[in-house]
Amino acid sequence: MRYQDGYKDQKRRELLKAAGAAAKKKGFAATGVDALAEAAGVTSGAVYAHFGSKAGLLDAVIVNEMERSRARWSRNPERSVETWAAEEVARYLSRAHIDHPESGCLMPALAADVARAAAPTRQVFEDQLKQAQREIAERLGEKDKAWQFLSQIVGAMVLARAVVSDDVQDEILAASRDAVTG
């Protein structure tokens, strides 16, 4: 069967988007290839055809999701550093981001999975993280401030998602917003 031009690329993009959302919601290690494929409306064979393995899919998800995050962070380059930081922190450290990990950032959702992955996958993550850090450093004007910014917001989201109480989640988010923008 011959597919229309662009069909395979479109299916790959759909698979990356759906697999990224499913993995961020349930964890990559805890989600089987069949479930990741089903989320995209394809067979598990399509996963292997596009990515070679589940690890290959994780690598592609990391790149795709980090590119999406960097695209969000690079919007409105004319904003002042203070305005940019306040807006990004408010968006990131939000109730919506706690409640809907599938539509949020890869880092707080999958960093633990990546930490347990093989070295090549961790290298893909490191390369993407360093690129994000460089882009944020350009915005903030300093390399160390970019690491501090990323560590604070990602760490706060990990902690906020890990606790049960809405009150404690709100305290973590508020304290972290103050630490980053205060």
Rank of each mutant, 00 (worst) to 15 (best):
50 H>N: 05
163 V>Y: 05
19 A>D: 02
53 S>K: 06
104 G>A: 11
93 L>F: 09
86 A>L: 05
156 A>D: 03
104 G>M: 11
39 A>L: 07
166 D>Y: 10
71 A>L: 10
137 A>W: 04
180 V>F: 00
137 A>M: 05
128 Q>D: 09
44 S>A: 08
7 Y>T: 13
107 M>H: 01
15 L>R: 10
121 T>E: 02
45 G>F: 04
110 L>V: 08
104 G>L: 12
179 A>G: 02
92 Y>T: 10
179 A>N: 02
66 M>T: 11
90 A>M: 07
113 D>E: 09
24 K>S: 05
86 A>K: 03
18 A>F: 05
49 A>H: 07
6 G>S: 07
121 T>V: 05
2 R>V: 15
170 D>C: 03
169 Q>I: 10
142 E>V: 14
133 Q>C: 04
12 R>G: 11
9 D>P: 08
128 Q>K: 12
38 E>C: 07
123 Q>P: 01
132 A>G: 05
71 A>S: 07
40 A>L: 02
142 E>P: 02
171 E>V: 14
70 R>D: 11
31 T>L: 09
89 V>F: 13
145 K>Q: 12
116 R>L: 11
153 I>W: 08
73 W>K: 04
146 A>M: 07
143 K>D: 09
180 V>A: 07
134 R>E: 04
171 E>K: 13
113 D>T: 03
110 L>G: 03
80 S>N: 01
50 H>F: 10
91 R>L: 15
166 D>R: 15
180 V>Q: 04
31 T>F: 02
130 K>P: 00
10 Q>P: 05
64 N>T: 10
33 V>C: 00
91 R>C: 05
52 G>L: 12
154 V>N: 06
89 V>L: 12
161 R>F: 11
78 E>S: 12
121 T>W: 00
137 A>T: 04
175 A>E: 13
48 Y>H: 14
65 E>V: 09
49 A>L: 01
33 V>S: 09
48 Y>A: 03
6 G>A: 11
95 R>M: 05
109 A>H: 08
20 G>P: 10
2 R>W: 12
75 R>V: 13
172 I>Y: 13
116 R>S: 13
60 A>Y: 00
34 D>M: 06
64 N>G: 08
34 D>W: 03
41 G>Q: 09
76 N>D: 14
22 A>S: 06
71 A>T: 02
157 M>G: 00
30 A>R: 05
92 Y>Q: 02
157 M>W: 03
168 V>H: 13
20 G>D: 00
37 A>S: 03
54 K>E: 01
51 F>L: 00
33 V>W: 00
102 E>Y: 01
113 D>M: 07
26 K>L: 15
156 A>L: 00
29 A>E: 04
29 A>L: 06
58 L>T: 00
158 V>S: 11
116 R>M: 09
121 T>Q: 02
177 R>E: 01
152 Q>D: 04
64 N>R: 11
180 V>H: 09
